[in-house]
C-alpha cells in the first residue's frame, strides 16, 4: 500500500528523512513509531503529497506519488498531526464542506447527508448538535477528525496520534473502531509515539529515529520467544542450584533460565520436589525493543543503551517543521 525507496527530505541543512525504505502491505495495521521530531510527520506528509521529497521514490496504492497524487488521495483517509476544523461552523457543516471539497469518486451532493451521518455514528458523535466546533472538547475534535477521515470509506487510513486527547474509554472505542475497519479490508497506517497504543492495535511496526528507519517488522515476530524461560519459585535457591549453569539472571525469587523449553524446565523442577509459582517463555516488550534499536542504532559516542539518552538539539529543532 505504501512503499518508499531511499526516501530523503532535507529542510535546508536539516536532514528530516534519511533514505527510508518503508513498506506497508495491504491489510496491515502498521504502527509507525518515533519520538517527536524524528521525521515521522514529514514522512507522512510526503506520502500524502503535502511535502515534496528531496530524493527517493514513493508509491502509494501502487501509484507513484506525487505524480499521481490526485488519483491516490481519494482512496485515503487521513488525520494529520491534529484534527482541524473551521471553529465558527458546526461539526456537520465542517464535514459537509470537507465532503464537498476535492475531486474523486464518492464526493457528490447525493448521499452526502447519509455519509456524514454514518461517519459521525462510527466515531460516536451521532448525537452531536449544531454548536460551533470551537466549543468542542479536544476529544470531540479528535472524533470529528476521525469522522472526516472515514467519510469516503478509504482503502488506506493514515492516522497521526488518533487517540490524542481521548479518555481511556474513548481510546478503547477508537482502537476497536480501527480494528473493525481493518477487518473490513482497510489498511491502517498509524503513526504515534505512544508504544502501548501501537502494541495493542498494530500487527506490524516501523521505528524511525532521527530520520532513519531503524526497525521494520511484524510485531509477532519481534515479540517472539527469546529462547529463555522465566521461573518464579519460593525455592529459588535450590532451583538455581538445580539449574546450575543455565541461570542467566536472578532477582530474588525470579530466575531467567537460558533454555527455550519451558515445559522441560518445569518438569525438571517439579520432579525435584520444588514449588513453582510461574514458568513462562521470555518475550521482549515493545518498549525494550524500541529503546534498544533507537539506542544501538544511534551513532552517539557514549553508546548508552539503558534508558533514552537526551536528543541532540539539532534534531529536536525539527519539531517546528516536521510535527
Amino acid at each position: 500500500m505504501i512503499v518508499t525507496t531511499q526516501l530523503t527530505k532535507r529542510f535546508g541543512h536539516v536532514l528530516a528523512v534519511d533514505h527510508v525504505d518503508l513498506t506497508v502491505r495491504e491489510g496491515d495495521r502498521y504502527g509507525f513509531l518515533g519520538p517527536n521530531g524524528s521525521g515521522k510527520t514529514t514522512l507522512v506528509r510526503m506520502v500524502l503529497g503535502l511535502v515534496y521529497a528531496t530524493s527517493g521514490k514513493i508509491e502509494v496504492l501502487g501509484e507513484p506519488v506525487p505524480a499521481r497524487i490526485a488519483h491516490v488521495l481519494p482512496q485515503i483517509g487521513s488525520l494529520i498531526e491534529s484534527p482541524s476544523a473551521y471553529g465558527h461552523l458546526s461539526g456537520r457543516a465542517n464535514l459537509a464542506l470537507i465532503d464537498a471539497a476535492g475531486t474523486g469518486p464518492g464526493g457528490g451532493r447525493r448521499g452526502r447527508r447519509a455519509r456524514i451521518a454514518t461517519a459521525l455514528d462510527r466515531v460516536g458523535l451521532s448525537g452531536v448538535d449544531d454548536r460551533a466546533v470551537r466549543k468542542y472538547s479536544l476529544g470531540m475534535r479528535q472524533r470529528l477528525g476521525l469522522a472526516a477521515a472515514l467519510l469516503r470509506s478509504p482503502r488506506l487510513l493514515v492516522l497521526d496520534e488518533p487517540t490524542n486527547g481521548l479518555d481511556p474509554q474513548g481510546i478503547r472505542e477508537v482502537r476497536d473502531l480501527l480494528a473493525e475497519i481493518n477487518a473490513a479490508g482497510t489498511t491502517v497506517f498509524l503513526s504515534s509515539h505512544q508504544l502501548s497504543e501501537v502494541e495493542q492495535l498494530c500487527t506490524r511496526i516501523g521505528v524511525i529515529d532521527r530520520g532513519r528507519l531503524v526497525l521494520q517488522d511484524d510485531l509477532a515476530r519481534l515479540r517472539g520467544p527469546t529462547g529463555r524461560v522465566i521461573v518464579r519459585s519460593p525455592d529459588a535457591d535450590r532451583a538455581a542450584a538445580l539449574l546450575d549453569g543455565r541461570v542467566a539472571d536472578r532477582d530474588a525469587d525470579r530466575l531467567v533460565v537460558a533454555d527455550s523449553d519451558a515445559a522441560g524446565v518445569n518438569a525438571l523442577l517439579v520432579s525435584a520436589g520444588l514449588r513453582v509459582t510461574e514458568v513462562t517463555e521470555e518475550r521482549r516488550s515493545l518498549e525494550d525493543l524500541v529503546l534498544s534499536v533507537t539506542g544501538s542504532g544511534s551513532d552517539r559516542i557514549d553508546g548508552g543503551s539503558a534508558g533514552r539518552p537526551g536528543r541532540p538539539a539539532e534534531v529536536a529543532s525539527r519539531d517546528g517543521a516536521g510535527t
Binding site: R45, I80, S82, S84, G102, T103
Partner: peptide, 10 residues
C-alpha cells in the same frame, strides 16, 4: 490547520 486537509482531500 485546514490547508493540509483540503489538499489531502484532494
Amino acid at each position: 490547520g485546514m490547508l493540509r486537509y483540503l489538499l489531502a482531500r484532494p
